[in-house]
Design a protein around this nucleic acid. Structure first.
Lengths: 64, 64
DNA sequence: ATAAAATGTCAAATAGTTTTTACATTTACC
DNA sequence: GGTAAATGTAAAAACTATTTGACATTTTAT
């Protein structure tokens, strides 16, 4: 699974910390997901999409 | 989180077992998700969407 | 060059998802 | 009504996601 989180977050000029707060998770969680350590839960994927003003299907690129 | 899995699966006339096989998970997992026992992982959400010929954003309705 | 902010990372603990095995109930069909 | 297929459910184990706290490194700005 790849994702566009870092790109879009930077376009919006917000920090991992700020995105974490808006999504109600820890900064480490955002960091881990941006760096492909693991995938977010479906609920978090939706929160991320909302806060990054996009859709789950556009934010994540499912591979195989 | 709500989802349209059962509806679409029935429209396609396939069993929970058949959908499970196609998604590479157990029948119990499909059953639990259809009955809102828990949310699928993001990867499974994508597999479900593909097999049900829709998108994650359409298949799941994120609440709150 | 320095300080502050942002990011990377790690380990331990907790929470959530999935599998397996097994059995019970319901639905569809002959 | 009987039988097979489909669905519901449960417990334990394995695996995955998230949190917290802490510290190191990198980036940004002065």
């Amino acid at each position: 699974m790849q994702n566009q989180i870092r790109d879009i977050r930077k376009q919006m000029k917000i920090s991992q910390e700020e995105l974490a707060v808006r999504c109600g998770v820890s900064r480490q969680t955002i960091n881990a997901i941006e760096n492909d350590k693991y995938d977010p839960t479906l609920a978090l994927a939706f929160k991320l999409s909302k806060n990054l003003e996009t859709t789950v299907d556009q934010l994540f690129v499912f591979k195989e």
